[in-house]
């Protein structure tokens, strides 16, 4: 455990050094991210100039959902997205061999080697949106609720990691996997809205699938509900359960896919 902690620290240090090599690039990227957040907020403002409620979500509740979504997204992108994205490149070039040959868990090494500090810079911005919108929404927040909120955020990031890593491992068969980036984009697109809007589609089948089968709708909605709306412990429990089930399945998928990995080049 200590050894893995040391490896993790070394990876983070390397990522920071790499990021700081191109400081101008880093700062422009951070500006880009903040600009993107500003545009999402502008979209919310434009919507709420036309209506006062979307499926029971007031503007400030919706903003809290948006802030929570950005928080989950940024944490996932900071620690895992770049690593999942790299898998297909490693498979395509055969460089996965170098990961497999190291005397440590290959899934661990594959999952944590890169840290995206640009995405990390979004975390305080997203947290700021959450704090501001929660206070504007007039909710009373207890320490217990905040602790539960942070725990649920952890479940959400774990679930996303497990889903995306499992998907990334299919590149062992598809070889090129530009679909991963699209998939992440669309997961993000689906998850950032109130889950209730999906209940009206196809007799609620889509909502059921996105909540219970591939539970991407839970990752932002459940933590947001913990603070600004009704707390339903059944969904909190289900999200936690699914996070651990999917994490286990990702390890099964990794081992299974490695049986098919044929390396590349010479």
């Amino acid at each position: 455990m200590v050894r893995y902690g040391r490896i993790l620290l070394r990876f983070w240090k390397n990522s920071l050094i790499r990021e700081m090599t191109f400081r101008g690039h880093f700062f422009v990227q951070v500006v880009g991210e903040v600009l993107w957040i500003a545009m999402i907020l502008m979209f919310v403002r434009v919507i709420y100039t036309q209506t006062s409620s979307i499926q029971g979500w007031s503007e400030h509740q919706y903003l809290f959902l948006t802030g929570t979504h950005l928080l989950v997204k940024s944490l996932f992108e900071t620690f895992f997205f770049g690593n999942c994205w790299r898998v297909s490149h490693l498979v395509q070039t055969g460089d996965l061999d170098f990961v497999l040959l190291r005397p440590a868990s290959a899934q661990f090494l594959l999952s944590v080697e890169k840290v995206d500090f640009t995405a990390l810079a979004n975390v305080p911005v997203a947290a700021g949106i959450c704090i501001w919108s929660a206070s504007e929404a007039g909710v009373s927040v207890t320490v217990g609720r905040v602790a539960l909120y942070l725990l649920v955020l952890g479940f959400s990031v774990t679930l996303l990691y497990s889903l995306l890593f499992t998907f990334a491992m299919t590149s062992v068969w598809f070889v090129r996997q530009t679909g991963l980036q699209s998939m992440w984009f669309y997961v993000v697109s689906l998850a950032r809205y109130p889950s209730e809007i999906y209940q009206r589609f196809a007799g609620g089948v889509l909502w059921f699938v996105l909540v219970f089968v591939i539970p991407v709708l839970l990752v932002s909605n459940v933590p947001a509900n913990v603070i600004v709306r009704e707390l339903d412990m059944r969904f909190v429990g289900y999200l936690g359960l699914m996070a651990f089930v999917m994490l286990y399945l990702s390890t099964v998928m990794f081992r299974f896919s490695m049986r098919w990995y044929r390396s590349a080049s010479s």
């Binding site: 697109s189 809007i197 009206r200």
Partner: peptide
Amino acid sequence: TTILLWDAI
């Protein structure tokens, strides 16, 4: 998502 969101709006 777009269809459902605008329906709600």
